[in-house]
C-alpha cells in the first residue's frame, strides 16, 4: 500500500511534466498538423537555461530567504522566455517555408532541427548529465499513508496552474479564439481577417513557453539535466498527446498523467529497463485501435 501510494505520487509528478510537454505537441499539431519533433529538445533547452540561471545566482550567493523565491521565479521566467523564443524562431526559420510542402518535408526538417539542437546543447553543456541546483527544499510530508515530497507538490501545482491558465487563455482570449479558428480552417480564418502567420507564431511561442515550464520542473524533479533528456521525454509526451487525442488540450493533459503513471507503475512491476517498451507498446496499441485517442473525435476522410 505504502509503495503503491509512493508510485502513484511519482507517476503524477512525471505525468505533470509529460502533460506540459504534450501540450506543446498538441497545440502545434492542432494548428499545423506537424509533429514538432524538436519540441522535446526545446524542453531540454528550458532545463539548461533554468539551470544556468540558478547556478549563476547560487554562485553570487543570492539564493537565500526572499532571494531564493526571486531566484526561482527568475529561473522559471528565463526558461519560459528562452524556450518561447527558440520555438518561435524554429517555426520562423524552418517550418514556415514548408507549409505547402509535402507532408514528410516538415517532419524530416523537424528531425533535423532536433538533431542540431541536441548537438548544440551537448557542445554547450557537455555530454554528461549536469546536476540541477537543489533549490526547493524537499522535506517529506505524511498525509495519511501517503508520503510526498514538497518538491513533488510544487512540481504538480506549478504544472496544473500552467494548464489552467492555458485552458482559459485558449477558451476566452481573442488570441486563443484565433488559434482555434486557424486550427479548424486556415483559409476561412484568414478570410475573416485573422492573421494566420501571426497566430501560428504565437502558438509556437506558447508551446515553447510550456516547454520552458516543463524544463524547469523537470530539472527540479529529476535533479539533473542532460542533453538527450528531451528525446525520451519528448517521445513519451508525444505518446501522451496521441493517447489523449492529438490536437485536444484536455486530452494531452489526461494522456500526460496516464503515461506518467504507466511509466512509474511499469518500473515498479517489471523494472525500469522495460518502461520504454511499455510506453511504446501503448503508443502502438492506441494508434492501432483508437487512432483518434481517448478524447479525440474521428473525422471521415475528405473526398
Amino acid at each position: 500500500m505504502h509503495e503503491f501510494l509512493a508510485q502513484l505520487a511519482n507517476g503524477v509528478e512525471l505525468g505533470a511534466i509529460y502533460a506540459l510537454i504534450a501540450l506543446g505537441y498538441t497545440l502545434v499539431y492542432g494548428i499545423l498538423e506537424l509533429i514538432n519533433f524538436a519540441h522535446g529538445d526545446v524542453y531540454t533547452f528550458g532545463s539548461f537555461t533554468a539551470l544556468v540561471v540558478l547556478v549563476a545566482l547560487r554562485a553570487a550567493h543570492f539564493l537565500h530567504g526572499a532571494g531564493l523565491i526571486l531566484g526561482i521565479v527568475a529561473a522559471l521566467a528565463v526558461a519560459i522566455l528562452a524556450c518561447a523564443l527558440l520555438n518561435a524562431g524554429i517555426e520562423r526559420l524552418a517550418y514556415r517555408r514548408l507549409r505547402k510542402a509535402p507532408r514528410l518535408a516538415p517532419l524530416i526538417t523537424a528531425i533535423g532541427v532536433s538533431f542540431m539542437l541536441e548537438n548544440l546543447i551537448e557542445l554547450w553543456q557537455g555530454a554528461a548529465p549536469v546536476p540541477f541546483p537543489n533549490v526547493i527544499p524537499n522535506p517529506e510530508l505524511e498525509i495519511g499513508a501517503l508520503q510526498v515530497g514538497v518538491q513533488q507538490i510544487v512540481v504538480v501545482a506549478l504544472a496544473i496552474a500552467t494548464m489552467v491558465a492555458l485552458h482559459y487563455f485558449v477558451k476566452r482570449s481573442r488570441l486563443g479564439k484565433a488559434m482555434r479558428a486557424v486550427a479548424q480552417d486556415r483559409d476561412a480564418a484568414s478570410l475573416v481577417g485573422i492573421d494566420v502567420d501571426r497566430t501560428i507564431a504565437i502558438t509556437f511561442l506558447i508551446a515553447g513557453a510550456l516547454a520552458g515550464v516543463a524544463g524547469f520542473v523537470g530539472g527540479v524533479s529529476f535533479g539533473s539535466a542532460w542533453f538527450l533528456n528531451g528525446f525520451g521525454a519528448g517521445l513519451r509526451a508525444f505518446t501522451a498527446a496521441v493517447l489523449g487525442g492529438i490536437g485536444n488540450i484536455a486530452g494531452a493533459m489526461l494522456g500526460g498523467f496516464l503515461i506518467g503513471l504507466l511509466e512509474s507503475f511499469s518500473t515498479w512491476f517489471i523494472g525500469g529497463q522495460w518502461s520504454n517498451v511499455a510506453v511504446f507498446s501503448v503508443l502502438i496499441l492506441v494508434l492501432v485501435f483508437r487512432p483518434s485517442g481517448l478524447l479525440g473525435e474521428s473525422l471521415p476522410e475528405k473526398v
Binding site: A94, R97, A105, G112, S114, M116, L123
Partner: peptide, 20 residues
C-alpha cells in the same frame, strides 16, 4: 566527431528548405 549530429541535422534541414 562531436558535431556529427549537427551536420546531419543541418543536411536534413538544408536539403528540405533549399533542395527538397
Amino acid at each position: 566527431s562531436n558535431i556529427h549530429f549537427l551536420i546531419y541535422g543541418a543536411i536534413l534541414v538544408g536539403i528540405m528548405l533549399f533542395r527538397p
